[in-house]
Amino acid sequence: MFTGIIQATAKILRVVPYGGVRKVSIQRPAVFSELREGASIACDGICLTVTGFNQASFEVEVMAETLAKSTAGAWNTNTLLNLEPALKLGERLDGHWVQGHIDRVTKLLETSTKADTTRLRFSLDSRDRELLVLQGSIAVNGVSLTVSELGPSSFCVALISHTLKHTNLSQLVPGAAVNLEYDVLGKYIRALHQSSSLSLESLHEKGF
């Protein structure tokens, strides 16, 4: 489990195909002093397991399904990633609940800046429209953000200078692909609604 508060950014050192997976070696940030094999790290919002490490780098393996359903399939040497270690019990929850399971890859449509705020507009799949609400949470490349505008086919988030400085979102240009993870609460509510037989007609039949 993660919070969407990025601890560091780091570049990929190498990507090596290995059977149906890819082994990815990533620079080890100084703040990752408690790294261990088997630990979970969110890399651009994708929950991955540390399979090895040394003082300068750590390694993860990316499965074929993850490569197909996220931006990981396009990762190359020098790709800059947002990194967040798994949340520890008792730590502050400054963002929102993020699982590290990518729901959709979408593209940046446009950017605009006014004063110290940068707005990013992303394309929104019509199937996902009901998973977003104004002022609700969404993770973009693993970054916990608030939906500031919501339309039928796009949504906006507003970034302060701190977020731009400490994440890779500052490098995005129109057309760039990003990982999206919708709020898990919204996904559970939709699943319950879709599986429920409750309707006005059924309530009337039961005397309500």
Rank of each mutant, 00 (worst) to 15 (best):
I5D: 06
L164D: 03
R22N: 08
S153Q: 15
A86K: 02
A115D: 14
E61N: 15
S199I: 05
E201H: 13
K23C: 12
N54Q: 09
F32D: 00
E61D: 15
S57Q: 13
D103H: 00
L124Q: 02
T146N: 04
L159R: 05
E149G: 11
V105F: 01
L180G: 05
S33G: 10
N168H: 05
L198C: 07
K114E: 08
E205K: 15
Y18T: 07
F2G: 01
V147M: 05
L108W: 02
G175C: 14
T163I: 00
R28G: 04
K187C: 08
L87Y: 03
D125N: 12
H204I: 08
L109F: 06
Q194F: 12
L164W: 00
L172C: 06
Q27G: 06
L83K: 01
I189K: 11
L132S: 04
P174K: 12
I41S: 06
T66Q: 04
G142F: 01
H204F: 13
G19M: 09
K69R: 15
Q55P: 14
V21P: 08
M63P: 07
M1Q: 12
V21C: 09
A72M: 01
I12Y: 01
L67K: 02
L145W: 03
S197D: 15
R121A: 11
L172F: 08
A115T: 12
S170E: 08
R127V: 06
Q55R: 10
K69H: 11
G73E: 03
D183W: 09
T118N: 03
S170F: 05
L203H: 07
T111R: 14
G52C: 09
E34K: 12
G151H: 07
E181K: 10
S126H: 11
S153I: 10
R127D: 10
G207V: 09
D94L: 01
K107I: 07
I26D: 01
A191N: 13
C43I: 05
I5V: 12
S144W: 02
I189S: 12
R22Y: 05
S25M: 10
L83G: 01
A74H: 13
A64D: 15
V60R: 03
H204T: 10
Q55N: 10
N141W: 02
